[in-house]
Amino acid sequence: MAETSDQTPPSGLSQFLDRVGRLTVAGIEEVGNGGAMVAQSLYWLFCGFRYKQPVRMNAVIQQMMEIGISAIPIIALLAGSISTTLAIQGIYTLRIFGAEGHVTAGLAFIVVREFAPMITGILVAGRSGSALAARIGTMKINQEIDALKVMGIDPVRYLVAPPLIAMVIMVPCLSMMSSVVGLYLAGVYINLELGISLAAYFDQILNILTVEDVLHGLGKSVIYAIEIAVIGVVNGAGVQGGAEGVGKATTRSVVQSISAIIITAMVVVILSTL
């Protein structure tokens, strides 16, 4: 009897559960790897000098240039476009109630607390998170990471810590810039549409916004930065199968980063309203 049941092919349900189980374990493993890399990066940042292997500041600055400075034009363009669109839709909606003059309040909150960090995060994920995954994946299949290990250069210190630190610094900065540019261009539209002067518009915004609102947006930017870096590195480190594997890891990294950013935004909003 036992022999007969052993030879029975697995049912569709058991195959499905098997697959779900494997994917769950793989997901937990990836989260664990990501956490370990963040912890190791912090370790090398603060303790690397003991081993005469500090995290190189010129590598961090180079990454800051690539992640931050090079991204300014596209982030400014999109932040301005989205904020202007929000202003147009806001005025259109509030006009139904004869309250279009209050568009500034909604705009200030949503841009500073939500849209600026989110748009910045999504663009950095698309530009730099994917590049990080591709770079590490390519280095892995070319045995460059093995070469680092044999040379006594810790790959996490050399490859992971600089972009992680650079992102944690630059994403909040870009997010702030994105808020300012977005609010300014939306203000220009409001000025043209409703005749509210820019001085009055920014005066309203400064009266409405609190330090807590700004910190809310900046805090989320820091979380997004860590998510983008960790997801990029974990996907890059998991590359298998040559150039095709690098392509898959890059795509996966972008999709996961954007998903993580949007889900994080929702979770933080829910938690902040409790």
């Binding site: 070319n142 045995q143 093995d146 070469a147 290990k149 044999v150 040379m151 006594g152």
Partner: peptide
């Protein structure tokens, strides 16, 4: 110890 080892990989790396 690592500093006393050198490696030339197949593809150069």
């Amino acid at each position: 110890l690592r500093k006393k080892l050198g490696v030339a990989f197949q593809g150069g790396a």
